[in-house]
Design a protein around this nucleic acid. Structure first.
Length: 309
DNA sequence: AAACATAGCAACCGCAAAACC
DNA sequence: GGGTTTTGCGGTTGCTATGTT
């Protein structure tokens, strides 16, 4: 018993040091990614075999996309595969080269928390003001009811492009992603990503039929064949009408009911593409509307013809 | 500037399946 | 065939960075 206590106390836990990483890499180079328990029995590291394996799988092995946010495409893959397989993170991760089961799990967990918070806020009338105060909760949502014409910032698109490039260029196995995703052609439809869906469904829910494409085209006319994801539909089903009546009460768009389709408060993105815009080019788009979208959300979108005026 | 809230990430734990003896 | 060890997975926790008030 005493001996066991001493043994247990010798096991290191917590963050890994560079020397430990180096030792672990050496072991794998010699023996391959196996015999994890022998690492400790040989006295190489005071870590459990499980801990060594986890460190290798999640951080040290090659071709990992450490530090890169999930792209819109990756998000779609996760959402679709989670719906199909459930919480089989390891299985889902096999469809995402460079991502580990832990990455996928963490991504999903964060997303669930975000959705839960939105739902919670939507369910309590008194929380509407709180909702509107929090920028991160619904991307761009807080800007929508504001009828003024805010200035267009170019900083975000610069950031988006630099981030997208730094991630995509450093990982050559993106082709593998495409190969796998081709098995799921529905995954690469020009849908909006998760957060965008949340924002869109909340806007669209003013209408009688939130899934109607005509509605989506009213609010997001620059997005072709806009469809709601499973998640959005589920979320929308749970949202309560009073919330929206509160939030949008000051606004009224009779043209929506009459079928007279006009742009209520947003103008479409120019066909030249998001990154091609210049400052002041389209002053009616709120400058924070896209701030929470993944950097390459627009990569999947076909350029649209210039809007009819 | 400080306090608080939130998101993202790394790592641990318990359990189950697989492998080994 | 059964016991033990190893490996793999999913859930959870804790820490840190960042944003907000």
């Amino acid at each position: 018993m005493e001996g066991r206590r001493v043994e247990m106390s010798q096991i290191r836990k917590g963050p890994w040091k560079a020397e430990e990483d180096e030792m672990l890499i050496n072991h794998v180079n010699k023996h391959g990614p196996r015999d994890w328990s022998s690492i400790r029995s040989k006295g190489l590291l005071q870590r459990t075999g499980k801990s060594c394996r986890l460190r290798w799988v999640n951080k040290l092995r090659s071709n990992l996309k450490n530090g890169c946010k999930f792209t819109a495409e990756e998000e779609r893959v996760v959402i679709e595969l989670q719906a199909e397989f459930g919480n089989k993170w390891a299985k889902i991760a096999t469809y995402l080269p460079g991502r580990t089961d832990n990455d996928v799990k963490n991504f999903w967990s964060s997303r669930q928390k975000r959705l839960a918070r939105i739902l919670q806020n939507s369910g309590t009338p008194s929380s509407s003001s709180k909702l509107l105060k929090t920028k991160k909760e619904i991307p761009g949502f807080h800007d929508v009811p504001v009828m003024e014409a805010p200035k267009l910032s170019s900083s975000m698109e610069e950031l988006s492009h630099s981030k997208a490039q730094s991630c995509s260029s450093s990982h050559l196995d993106n082709t593998q992603t495409i190969t796998k995703v081709e098995q799921f052609p529905e995954l690469v439809n020009p849908q909006l990503n998760t957060d965008a869906n949340i924002a869109q469904l909340e806007l669209m829910s003013r209408g009688k039929n939130p899934y109607a494409e005509t509605q989506s085209q009213v609010f997001f006319p620059w997005i072709p064949h806009l469809t709601l994801s499973l998640e959005s539909q589920e979320l929308l089903a749970k949202l309560e009408d009073h919330y929206f009546s509160q939030v949008f009460a000051p606004m009224d768009f009779p043209e929506l009911d009459s079928g007279n389709v006009e742009q209520p408060f947003l103008e479409p993105v120019r066909s030249s593409g998001f990154g091609a815009k210049e400052e002041g080019d389209n002053p009616t788009i709120p400058d924070t509307f896209f701030h929470d979208f993944p950097a390459d959300i627009f990569d999947q979108m076909e350029p649209l013809p210039s809007p009819l005026v």
